[in-house]
Design a protein around this nucleic acid. Structure first.
Lengths: 218, 218
DNA sequence: AGTCAAATACGGCAAATGGCGTATTGTGTT
DNA sequence: AACACAATACGCCATTTGCCGTATTTGACT
């Protein structure tokens, strides 16, 4: 690459902004050009200065959030790559960002090297995704039904292990088989299921599996 | 991770097989256990030897292809991670593989380090995807094209009464409650369910409800 | 250093479930 | 009339499930 990759960043948190700049500064092929504290500011700066290759875009910002900004930006300058860089990894944000035209979706905990690689890959016509995000996109693809279902549910949180158990439950497996598959004692599996039921407010396998699917927990 | 990651490979091309083995051999935390030349062979080897963490699965194989094999494998051993490793990157294969339950999709041109990283990330609950594949999944998500399975449907026929019972089953109700609702004795409900299981070739409420939904019987 | 949540695990108990055989009644078809 | 089949129903039995209490370990955060 003869030319440096020119980058703009949109983020309202100046501390995180600084962290990102630092990560980028390790690499000589990257050139951090400017930043904005919200979507509107970013778009205004683009009016005078469009020679940017990649935008790293936060989602939660005042005035105009990153998803709206992405939508407008990609419509106006389609050649510019937009990579979401955020702490939020809920399905709705991911899906909205993709719909808005994002070329990648990374989480802020990403290390400098992976960020760099993601930027380069995106410029080369790929897409940047942290593995946990990739998993969620796979799940979204598997259940195309609920794309319409935008309304909020009361955010039931299951632990990772509980989700694993639930996934096995959904295959119709029994406690003992699940225990074997996960290298646990049946007692533990049963306790996990008990806890799942409490969290989901259900009283049987079927109800649990159905509720989990509704809430896209599996 | 104290334990080595145990890997099985399915690929009909022995040359490519060797290449993959070589790539894996660079890493001390990876343990290539066995390989198979097609999906059927893989499943047979799994019958005796299931202590595998990750399967690297080719798509085009004789006898049984990688997508069918993935579907069966993931149903039988849901905890095992399956990563497609193939030269084919067309939308249909990607989508089918994801539907079949693949946990990742990598292209064979991948270098050793990225392959290793992908395996580890997948084990850690993420998903492995080469950037070009990630891009295609994003596009698939953006386009609300209905990829609903046109094929299969073995036309299982249930009687009216059986459908009624099944509908109640799907609400998560017990035999006795269903009996009350339909003005039947619990024995009858159980017999109906027994017959339903036989027709659907399943062995539990959950499986029955899921199969019925797949076949749009309820 | 202390707290907390999560993951692990056991035992007990009542109810539900899944699989088997058997039997009677009605209904429609050959 | 004979036959097939769905719907109804009971009993037996082993296993699974749902619910309860309790307990230890570990890792994360304060």
């Amino acid at each position: 690459m003869s030319q440096k990759i020119r980058i703009a960043i949109a983020d309202d948190n100046t501390f995180l902004l600084k962290t990102v700049f630092e990560k980028l500064s390790f690499f000589e092929d990257l050139d951090s050009r400017f930043h904005a504290l919200n979507g509107k500011e970013l778009l205004e700066k683009f009016k005078e200065n469009q020679n940017i290759d990649v935008v790293l875009m936060d989602i939660e910002m005042p005035v105009m959030n990153g998803i709206e900004a992405t939508e407008i930006l990609k419509k106006r300058y389609p050649q510019i790559k937009v990579i979401m860089l955020t702490v939020f990894d809920n399905d709705e944000n991911i899906f909205k960002a993709i719909k808005a035209g994002a070329d990648g979706y990374l989480l802020k905990e990403i290390d400098a090297k992976d960020l760099h690689d993601g930027i380069v890959e995106t410029l080369n016509g790929g897409a940047a995704m942290t593995p946990s995000i990739a998993l969620k996109t796979l799940r979204l693809l598997r259940n195309p039904i609920e794309f319409t279902n935008e309304k909020d549910k009361e955010e039931v949180k299951l632990s990772e292990r509980e989700v694993e158990v639930l996934e096995q439950l959904s295959k119709g497996l029994s406690y003992t088989i699940i225990a074997e598959n996960l290298y646990l004692s049946p007692s533990t599996v049963r306790k996990h299921i008990e806890n799942i039921y409490k969290k989901l407010q259900v009283h049987s396998k079927i109800e649990a599996v159905q509720k989990a699917k509704e809430n896209k927990l599996i």
